[in-house]
Design a protein around this nucleic acid. Sequence first.
DNA 1: ATAAGGCATAGAGTTAACTCCAAGTCAACT
DNA 2: AGTTGACTTGGAGTTAACTCTATGCCTTAT
Lengths: 125, 125
Amino acid sequence: MTITEVSKKFGLSPDTLRYYERIGLIPRVHRNESGIRDYTEEDCRWIEFIKCMRDAGVQIEALIEYVALFQQGDATVEARKQILIEQREQLIARIEEMQKALERLNYKIEQYETKVVPAQNKLKR
Amino acid sequence: MTITEVSKKFGLSPDTLRYYERIGLIPRVHRNESGIRDYTEEDCRWIEFIKCMRDAGVQIEALIEYVALFQQGDATVEARKQILIEQREQLIARIEEMQKALERLNYKIEQYETKVVPAQNKLKR
DNA sequence: ATAAGGCATAGAGTTAACTCCAAGTCAACT
DNA sequence: AGTTGACTTGGAGTTAACTCTATGCCTTAT
């Protein structure tokens, strides 16, 4: 697959794909004879995984480390697992924050719906 | 309350509190005779609300607009409600993205725990 | 064979959201 | 009275994560 195809497939710009590769957020992509990127199935799986994590707000730093460890082989299995566990904890914490905000928004919207002007509004001069 | 007290109470730096006020993310804070911020209960409620929203990733732009409308009074009730609804939708979408990533992390960690080396790893040269 | 279009790289520029800095004011101790 | 320390402002600097630009190389249609 060409970079343009991959770009469309995953909704990431070619610039972003090149950038991800440059900083080691995805392993080095396969090239053809003239040095042009020719993404394999595996390259695509990496991109999809990374996109999923990035969309969820997982920090690039942690992912770069994960990819680097991955490329160092089986000796790093435990370290990789720890990174995933750490990121999972952070993700859970963020989801909880968001649930709190969501409940708050639900409550506020409900107030507006029942035409009850919120307390803050009343106090406001 | 002084800015330092509010800073500690909400875990936002004084710089951030001043910044939020400057850009209209919170309404202008009450001052004493010598121009020094003296946060009222209401100021604090705003800060707490904004912090909750920001922690959940709600965009500053939307919040600034909300605050601005708020200060324009009751005529803007409907517009404010629409902003909240829009932000709620975005929040729900983001939570869903994060749930997906979480499931994926759970799966991957489980793989590591059962000593099954992930498929990607096997394919990797 | 030449012009166009896609891709390459290195490095500069952008954006959001802070965070820091310099210079100055003011109340409260010593 | 002078020093200290928290506060003020306007504006510059930082960081993360892209995004764009300049320059140049291939391949392909004319």
